[in-house]
Design a binder for these strands. Structure first.
Lengths: 333, 333
DNA sequence: AATAAAAATGTAAACGCTTGCATATTAGAT
DNA sequence: ATCTAATATGCAAGCGTTTACATTTTTATT
């Protein structure tokens, strides 16, 4: 049962050819006579030979694995992205090394170091922004990197995402057109570029276009959890806000339930638009009106872009904004 | 900027020692004079040397990476497991290669092949059962494997999970003690061992202990989606069932909302207990009463067990059942 | 100061493959 | 048959480490 690893050398011997020839048939090199190819294939089958990817990687300097830096696989937004990444990765015969970063600056750096040590052919980075330290490390390596679903405020890195500013603007505009003047902006930390530089910008633009003054007290930055939202509902209750844009679905679900439990009727007394369109949005009652982000596609497209980069193909455009939508459900009128 | 890869050889030359010595300091081998260690470390730092894990893997026959076969990262149950796995993996300096299988027999086999080709040091398998074909492949390899959260009905594979039978029995017993006689059993496919061999068994045991006859028409096997549950609510409506045990939270949320939308008042007219305790259970209104499974811990413990196996340590017990609980919320009285 | 034992370092052979280059075989044209 | 040009195969040098084993240096003992 202890299958001593059979090597290319064993196959060569059994088939009566050189290991170079075996290598050729394994790699689908065309310059092999059909007869010998068959012979070799037969031996491979008989010996149950499985090429050692590590040796392959050392010799060819390609590992056919890509690193994926993800804040948290448990987060529905990111896991959906990851699924898109993995599907096209495996389509192109790549494997992914998945590493959680908790969106922490130090962990990210350490994870990157790890991934590079493992000689990944490319990296997909997910996060809520791109810290300078990390961007700098990125620029020091030859390994291609693409951002999936995130933003690089300095536009130095190939990226696949949506136009978060425009999407937020649209969402807030919808609230405005429903008659609201006091609209809360609820998001994760404003240290994250995606919130500070993009979403908040869209929010402000929408207000500006409607000549509504920006009100600092309507800005809430918390963490992306259900409980944070639930508790925030309290605070919100005391403000003049009559509607809210929320930057994450779980957070929005918390706000919604918190408000509801407090006797606020959504959407009659308060309207909510959330930002992602994860499954959650259909499970809450009332169902959440939301921006819809093509999460899976962003992951898939990002990975596809990475394959091109790894293949040294020319990339027409390294910054792809995929289309988004707004789905009206029951938390808006 | 094109950092030509600096190798152990470069470091050795610059430091005026042999590559063996460099290797020793890199690997923390004690037999190195402090002075030379410092010297080497300085050079490593200056040259920004990063050991090539692929070469390392070839030479040492250890890759410090483990394969994780997961049905779908997007599934909250499995992603939570995966998080536990990754956290302890990184604690022990392992990386994980994450591969989605969609719980498909053929994909699983192919993924396994891949993982073995990449010379992973170990494998964490997640699924809703263990197919014979796969179990057989497992037995043909020397690479240690542990099941996380799943079941091997033949008990041949090291496993970390909970006692699904007992948990289901408890849940159903609770329903019975609330006065129900007609209790629906709703789960994913009965081709999955976890449903057919474990959960259903617990369900039957609970009925038997209460002298309630098993009623085939109360058994519903569908797929694990919100929509499946939502639609199933229709069917359920026509039966005599007054309560249900549901094998997955998303499915349960569907049933709950479907029933509610149809005017059934939960828990007054119908009670529901679900099986996992993902975040969803607190988001639905009413909140779902549920079995609570220590998902993260199962992943973490499974990975810990795997590290022992990979280190050729003796495992006292290869079959760990972690404690579970039942959390009463609002879908039961 | 000599010697043995211990500690530190070096040498070189793997590890299992890919790949450039050389060589041998085959086919096509004359 | 002969010569050319493909086509097919083999040879051997890497790829960047680890790790026995050998050798040198240091330390301790007498």
């Amino acid at each position: 049962m202890e299958k001593e690893n059979v090597t290319i050398y064993d196959v060569a011997r059994e088939a009566g050819v050189s290991m170079a020839t075996v290598s050729r048939v394994v790699n689908g090199n065309s310059n092999v006579k059909q007869a010998t190819k068959d012979k070799v294939l037969a031996v491979i089958d008989r010996l149950d030979y499985r090429p050692n990817a590590v040796a392959r990687g050392l010799a060819s300097k390609k590992t056919t694995t890509v690193g994926v830096i993800i804040p948290d696989v448990t987060d529905m937004f990111f896991s959906e992205l990851a699924r898109g990444v993995d599907d096209v990765a495996s389509m192109y015969h790549y494997n992914i090394i998945l590493a959680n970063s908790d969106d922490s600056g130090t962990k990210e750096l350490q994870v990157l170091e790890n991934l590079l040590a493992k000689q990944v052919d490319g990296i997909i980075y997910m996060g809520n922004g791109l810290r300078d330290k990390l961007r700098e490390q990125f620029s020091h390596t030859n390994v291609p990197i693409v951002l999936a679903g995130g933003v690089d405020e300095k536009n130095q890195t190939p990226t696949v995402n949506i136009d978060y500013t425009a999407a937020t603007k649209d969402a807030v505009a919808k609230l405005i057109s429903n008659g609201h003047k006091k609209i809360a902006f609820i998001s994760g930390s404003l240290e994250q570029a995606i919130n500070k530089e993009y979403r908040l910008k869209g929010y402000k633009e929408a207000l500006a276009e409607a000549d509504i003054a920006f009100d600092e007290t309507l800005i809430f930055a918390t963490n992306y959890t259900y409980n944070a939202g639930f508790e925030l509902a309290n605070e919100l209750y005391g403000t003049s806000a009559t509607a809210a844009f929320v930057g994450a679905d779980e957070l929005a679900a918390g706000v919604l339930n918190g408000l509801t439990d407090r006797g606020v009727s959504v959407p009659n007394d308060f309207e909510i638009i959330t930002a992602i369109n994860t499954k959650l949005t259909q499970i809450t009652r009332p169902q959440l009106t939301t921006i819809s982000i093509p999460m899976y596609d962003m992951g898939a497209v990002a990975m596809r872009m990475l394959t091109k980069l790894m293949g040294k193909e020319n990339i027409e455009n390294g910054r792809l904004s995929l289309p988004y939508g707004i789905i009206s459900r029951q938390t808006t009128r």
